[in-house]
């Protein structure tokens, strides 16, 4: 299309052509993706935001990583409710006292150890 050396004007033509082809190609692709979405994607039913207040047994925690602990407990609650963390709001975390008698706990530990 051009000779060995090209002038700045010709360079501008190449730039205009190149950028417009690139844009057109990618715009066509993005419209095609919109079409795919309309054809094949169904919006999942939004789960209503539920407020769960659930007592959670909790291990001894250091004061300085409480935030991390809250995040972990939130994630665990969400997982056990089979929903996303976006749908639950943690308001309060209560420590539940362990009511298992000492002998019961010792038996459980022994059971667990024997499996390793």
């Amino acid at each position: 299309m051009f000779g060995e050396t090209i002038s700045l004007g010709e360079g501008l033509i190449v730039t205009a052509l190149g950028m417009s082809v690139t844009f057109v190609a990618l715009i066509v692709l993005s419209l095609m993706l919109d079409l795919l979405r309309i054809l094949f994607y169904k919006e999942p039913q939004k789960a209503p935001v539920q407020i769960v207040q659930q007592p959670v047994a909790e291990a001894e925690a250091e004061e300085d990583n409480m935030e991390e602990l809250v995040a972990v407990i939130t994630a665990a609650v969400a997982a056990s409710l089979q929903t996303s963390t976006h749908n639950i709001i943690v308001q309060n975390i209560l420590r539940v006292g362990d009511t298992t008698p000492t002998w019961g706990r010792a038996g459980r530990v022994e059971q667990m150890n024997s499996r390793f």
């Binding site: 700045l8 360079g11 501008l12 190449v14 730039t15 190149g18 950028m19 690139t22 844009f23 190609a25 990618l26 715009i27 692709l29 993005s30 419209l31 993706l33 919109d34 979405r37």
Partner: peptide, 20 residues
């Protein structure tokens, strides 16, 4: 997010500027 294709196109501007 199909609109991100436009960003992928815009960033190719560097190619043509350098060409000039």
């Amino acid at each position: 997010n199909p609109r991100s294709l436009l960003l992928g196109a815009a960033a190719q501007f560097g190619i043509f500027t350098t060409f000039i």
